[in-house]
Design a protein around this nucleic acid. Structure first.
Length: 884
RNA sequence: GGGGGGUUAGCUCAGCGGGAGAGCUCCUGCCUUACAAGCAGGCUGUCGCCAGUUCAAAUCUGGCAUCCCCCA
């Protein structure tokens, strides 16, 4: 046959796109029919208006590895891709775009704004899909979903109405976290707390009867217009007499009482706290206990409203604070101000300060769902990898708070609630009602708020499969198998999916949860736009190829560890891919004039048996690594197998074999080489998908696509520990001679005369004799004698030794053996220290009594080995000294 | 305040009870007709500190230091 030509250098751009399109157009990602247990992943949906970052790349490429591995193992696999509508983020994106044209969303009106948003969504969606394709995700695009698709919207309605009917959704006037910038309420966990430098103001509040004043300490003096009381601790002797007295609120005519409440920390500030229920969560609780009023002093845009004195109206909070402080000073009320750092909530989307804000919102009562979700975990239905995240999960579930799900946005699922304009009846309905259920009026208005985006994504594992309908997909693929995600959304998403799934389907949505590390820069900083330290996955693909990126990320993805990377990190994967390319290129060059012949194991050389043994071992290691999501172990296994075993030894040995073989033996060698290569391509495919597909299809000994080839599994008949022992022994000898050569600067051009004296107890004489020509090739010897009894002429040679052999190198020129003597002396010194340690152990009664039998045997073996080494070393030292 | 994680070769990290490892870097020698993105060698470590458990500790326990997360 003809040699197969491969481009001289590895260039992933030549084939990655082409192969992806081939897979996609031939529906290679669809789940196969089959009786086996399906393997199912739902992709964490990226924000549709976002851009994929390195975290997404990591996440999705690990999912791809799992999917490809299980697909090749013959399980029907389904990987559901999709995007979410990201209410706040998307609305912000569109509003920013409009702002450039000087248009506010209010100018457009709700309907036109939403229409505009859909257009933006479509554009961004294309970009996201393209990115996922570029990085090689083998997800089933026919199953792609968007959280605002009709089906998923129906799921949202179903879940809302069903929870409402069960009494788990309620509406009420509560203090919520409100982002004045985004103009919406947020859930508690959507608030990020940061320490800010602030001030603690001591403000005096006069007693109403003019008999004096008290002093409160506050960080937010501008909220004083919402004060309804001043509280002291009931145990505080200093203030007990004041409880029940009335105070005049400075800068106003308001009168407020002094009350007693345990919440007050006597040690903090003055021990007197102003109570502002509508603007502080703790005060809110105090107010509830004491039945206090809840005056709200803010407008939704964060400015002060008409409750406050005229002078401060329409000021934003910061301006108002300055003004109030100034007026308190001039009124003589400000006693003191000091620096005070405190925790301030910020919006997780826009990073502006969050205001506690009293407003009418919708909530989900979480307690019963959390209990079910916790129970499922306790029963072992869920496993987190790494395990420690289970603490985070259970802690959150045990301390769950009700979930504020209403958002004052336009983009999203509008809450399925209608109010009758005539009788005020509230209608909660799965379908848009046409008339009031009570008075039959047709004048109905839908609730203006939309739902939290997470209220749709918490249904993702089943809404994407067709729920609430009992679809074939639901029957076949739910519950899913594994979820792969980052730890920053365990609360937002993972926990809630488990709760929703238990609530609506009575099952957990997935069995395993693999939590990836975070991708950081080399300084350990999170990659972010503001720092400008992000790496664009597409740039990596452009520079090194998708395979290089995937392999590198996988190699670095140690369970539970963050990944610190820079652009250069990807050279690891790139070099590996290049190595695969070139090794293949070499093999294919050798096809010229050859015939492929059937492979018979009984004709295998020791090297052949060893290679299959190693590949077999690797398949076992990979399987057990993937089983417990140890991606880096799996990657390292294929890397070492291909590079160290295959390229460095097996291929090198094959060069020698080929040059000394007749035609039929050459045919056999080449056929085996191709089989070994194809075997490894299959092992490698999940980790470097494109290059393995490209190569596989070029191999004359393979059919069809590798994506559906069978993954190698442990095969008893390939197990051959004896070949491993033989080859290890051979490698030891080769390395020892090479080291000596290198140490003494004996160039490769100098062909040596070498004598190898295997130790008699090793029983390797026959094997070595068989391999002598190959050993000559490896060590660059002109001739080689293998002789167990050789003693006569070795005095004039350079001696080297290793476990089970001595070797003697004859060189004509006098060489600088001093260096070698020194090296050997150091070696001897080290070895005798090791021998001492071992001897001491064996002489230690406690060790002999307590240690495992294996450990004792190991020590005996070590002792023998060290003694042998010292014996040989000592003799060789004498020889060397005589030479010198 | 509570919880979690890191600390191993110059850098990035594996290893997590029985002789200190990988990749990159560095040094030496090689363009050996697959690959210089390569080949053959080599150097490098009080495994953060202090105690304890154990015959045996980088590995388990406790404390300390330090850095980083999360929650309140």
């Amino acid at each position: 046959m003809k040699a197969v030509e491969l481009e001289k250098s590895y260039n992933p751009k030549d084939f990655e796109d082409k192969i992806y399109q081939d897979w996609k157009t031939n529906d290679c990602f669809a789940p196969t029919e089959g009786a086996k247990d399906p393997f199912v992943i739902v992709m964490p949906p990226p924000n549709v208006t976002g851009i994929l970052h390195m975290g997404h790349a990591l996440n999705n490429q690990l999912q791809d590895i799992l999917i490809r591995y299980h697909r090749m193992c013959g399980r029907p696999t389904l990987w559901v891709p999709g995007t979410d509508h990201a209410g706040i983020a998307t609305q912000n994106v569109v509003e920013r775009q409009l702002a450039k044209k000087g248009v506010r969303r209010q100018d457009l009106g709700r309907e036109a704004f939403i229409e505009e948003t859909w257009k933006v969504k479509e554009r961004h969606h294309e970009v996201i899909v393209k990115q996922l394709e570029k990085i090689g995700c083998s997800c089933d695009w026919k199953h792609e979903r968007f959280t605002m698709d009709d089906g998923l919207s129906r799921a949202v309605r179903e879940s809302f109405v069903s929870l409402y009917e069960k009494g788990l959704i309620y509406k009420g006037n509560y203090l919520v976290n409100y982002c004045t910038h985004c103009g919406t309420a947020l859930a508690d966990d959507e608030v990020e707390y940061k320490t800010l430098e602030g001030k603690l103001y001591h403000v005096s509040y006069p007693l109403e009867d003019g008999s004096g004043s008290i002093t409160v300490a506050t960080t937010r003096p501008e909220t004083m217009f919402g004060d309804v009381a001043v509280a002291v601790n009931p145990d505080d002797e200093r203030y007990r007499h004041l409880v029940g007295r009335m105070l005049v609120l400075p800068l106003t005519d308001n009168k407020i009482p002094v009350i007693a409440d345990n919440y007050v920390d006597m040690e903090f500030g003055t021990g007197m706290v102003k109570i502002t229920p509508a603007h502080d969560p703790n005060d809110w609780l105090v107010g509830k206990r004491h039945n206090l009023a809840t005056p709200n002093i803010l407008n939704p845009d964060g400015t002060l409203n008409d409750i406050v004195p005229t002078a401060y109206r329409k000021m934003d909070v910061n301006t108002a604070r300055k003004a109030v402080v100034k007026d308190l000073i001039s009124g003589g009320y400000l006693k003191n101000e000091s620096r005070h750092d405190h925790e301030v909530g910020h919006c997780y989307r826009c990073h502006n300060v969050i205001e506690p804000f009293l407003s009418e919102q919708w909530f989900v009562a979480m307690k019963s769902m959390a209990e079910m979700a916790l129970e499922a975990w306790k029963l072992g239905k869920l496993t987190f990898y790494p395990k420690r995240w289970e603490n985070t999960y259970s802690h959150w579930m045990e301390n769950i708070r009700d979930w504020c799900i209403s958002r004052q946005l336009w983009w999203g699922h509008r809450i399925p609630v209608w109010y009758c304009d005539d009788c005020g009846e509230m209608i909660v309905s799965r379908n848009d009602p046409t008339e009031c259920s009570k008075c039959h009026s047709t004048r109905l208005s839908q609730e203006t708020d939309v739902l939290d985006t997470w209220f749709s994504s918490w249904l993702w594992p089943f809404s994407t499969l067709g729920w609430p309908d009992d679809t074939e997909d639901m029957q076949r693929f739910f519950p899913t198998t594994t979820l792969v995600t980052a730890y920053d959304i365990i609360f937002f998403w993972v926990s809630r999916m488990i709760m929703a799934s238990k609530e609506f389907l009575g099952q957990v949505p997935f069995k395993d949860i693999y939590i990836t590390g975070l991708v950081r820069d080399k300084l350990g900083r999170k990659m972010s736009k503001s720092l400008g330290n992000g790496i664009d996955p597409l740039e990596v693909v452009d520079m090194y190829g998708a395979d290089a990126m995937k392999f590198t990320l996988c190699y670095l993805a140690a369970q539970g560890q963050d990944l610190l990377i820079d652009m250069d990190s990807f050279k690891l994967g790139s070099r590996f891919a290049n190595k695969i390319w070139n090794a293949t290129r070499y093999l294919l060059m050798n096809l010229e004039g050859r015939n492929l012949v059937p492979i018979y194991h009984e004709h295998f050389s020791t090297f052949d048996r060893w290679m299959y043994h190693q590949m077999n071992e690797a398949s076992k290691k990979i399987a057990s690594a993937i089983e417990v999501y140890r991606f880096n172990d799996a990657a390292q296994t294929v890397y070492d197998l291909f590079w160290s075993d295959f390229c460095d030894w097996y291929v090198e040995a094959s060069k020698h074999a080929l040059s000394n073989a007749d035609d039929s033996e050459k045919d056999r060698i080449v056929s085996v080489l191709l089989d070994v290569l194809a075997f490894q391509m299959r092992l490698l495919h999940p980790f470097v998908s494109f290059i393995t597909e490209e190569i596989y299809q070029k191999l004359p000994n393979t059919e069809s696509r590798i994506i559906h080839a069978e993954y190698p599994v442990w095969n008893d008949s390939l197990d051959n520990p004896q070949s491993l022992q033989h080859i290890n022994y051979l490698q030891e000898i080769v390395k020892a001679v090479r080291t000596m050569r290198s140490e003494l600067h004996i160039g490769v051009e100098k062909k040596l005369h070498v004598v190898i004296r295997p130790d008699k107890h090793c029983g390797e004489l026959e094997f070595l004799t068989q391999q002598s020509s190959l050993i000559c090739y490896f060590i660059g010897a002109a001739n080689l004698a293998i002789d167990e009894d050789r003693t006569a002429d070795v005095h004039s040679a350079l001696p080297v030794s290793g476990a089970g052999f001595e070797a003697f190198i004859f060189v004509r020129e006098a060489l600088d053996v001093e260096h070698e003597i020194e090296r050997l002396e150091i070696e001897l010194e080290k070895t005798s220290v090791l021998l001492d340690t071992t001897k001491k152990k064996l002489a230690n009664e406690k060790f002999m009594n307590n240690a495992k039998q294996e450990a004792i045997e190991k020590e005996h073996a070590k002792k023998a080995e060290f003694e042998e080494k010292i014996d040989k070393g000592t003799r060789h030292l004498h020889l060397l000294k005589r030479l010198g």
